[in-house]
């Protein structure tokens, strides 16, 4: 569950967005899309690991790919690592997207916002290989942070929205869904909380799976840093790291 993985490739994809490919035996334990790895980037500063979702799992090559945004101290430091170097990886952790929720011949809508887009890639790949028809709606702030549009096109129709209208549809992912009247049997989403909330409210009768982001401590369920409320209870809780990060819509309070 913990390994010094070797950096195979490490390239910028868009503004502050990096694609990191790692090799190691841990890859053979990675199956479900939507799980994450907990990456240690330095000895003392920053002290804690960084939870980063798995974007692509390639068991044959023994490689996995992570896409992250270099923003805080940890990811900025990570962005400086070079191929050939190793990094301490714990994982895969958490519970991912239920791929089997969408059956062959059914339609799945995959909705991603910003740095929530990456885990949808492995999901799209697995759904497509199961014979599920996949459509992607990807939302970004602006044109210069858009990534992976072409790669998603391999698996199905892909629509992009930008908040400032500099690329694709101007507005949010929900604007694309509404304008195009996209229909589906199962919806999978990962992104900022307001986006997840909007999707949950718009499709109360549908089968919807949401992947949450939260500041984490341990990443394994011990520290209680990343808890969220469960509906209709003052004290009941779920932990994003170990019960999630993927929850069925309605399972937790967003």
């Amino acid at each position: 569950m913990k390994e010094q993985m070797t950096i195979v490739r490490h390239e910028p994809l868009a503004k502050q967005i990096y694609e990191l490919t790692l090799s190691g035996s841990l890859v053979q334990t990675m199956n479900e899309p939507g799980r994450f790895v907990h990456v240690k980037v330095a000895e003392y500063a920053p002290l804690l690991r960084r939870p980063l979702s798995l974007c692509d799992i390639n068991k044959e090559a023994g490689e996995c790919t992570i896409i992250y945004r270099a923003e805080g101290a940890g990811t900025t430091l990570l962005a400086k690592k070079c191929p050939g170097e190793t990094i301490d990886v714990l994982g895969p952790l958490g519970n991912g997207f239920p791929v089997e929720a969408a059956k062959a011949g059914q339609r799945a809508l995959l909705v991603g916002g910003g740095i929530g887009v990456p885990p949808l890639y492995e999901l799209a790949k697995q759904l497509a290989s199961n014979g599920v028809s996949v459509t992607m709606v990807l939302g970004f702030q602006t044109k210069e942070v858009v990534f992976y549009e072409q790669k998603f096109l391999t698996y199905g129709e892909t629509y992009v929205a930008t908040v400032d209208g500099s690329y694709g549809t101007k507005g949010f992912v929900t604007d694309v869904i509404n304008e195009r009247a996209l229909s589906f049997d199962v919806l999978y989403a990962c992104g900022p909380k307001p986006m997840l909330k909007a999707l949950e409210q718009q499709f109360p009768q549908k089968e919807v799976y949401l992947s949450l982001e939260e500041r984490m401590g341990c990443g394994v369920g011990a520290c209680f840093a990343c808890v969220c409320h469960v509906p209709n209870s003052e004290t009941a809780y779920k932990k994003v790291c170990s019960d999630g990060p993927v929850f069925k819509a309605g399972e937790v309070v967003l």
């Binding site: 003392y44 500041r215 984490m216 401590g217 209680f224 840093a225 808890v227 409320h229 004290t235």
Partner: peptide, 13 residues
């Protein structure tokens, strides 16, 4: 239930 999130923040070391 404890406190609202965020519940953790990093500091030097």
């Amino acid at each position: 239930f404890g406190n609202p999130t965020p519940r953790v923040a990093e500091t030097p070391s």
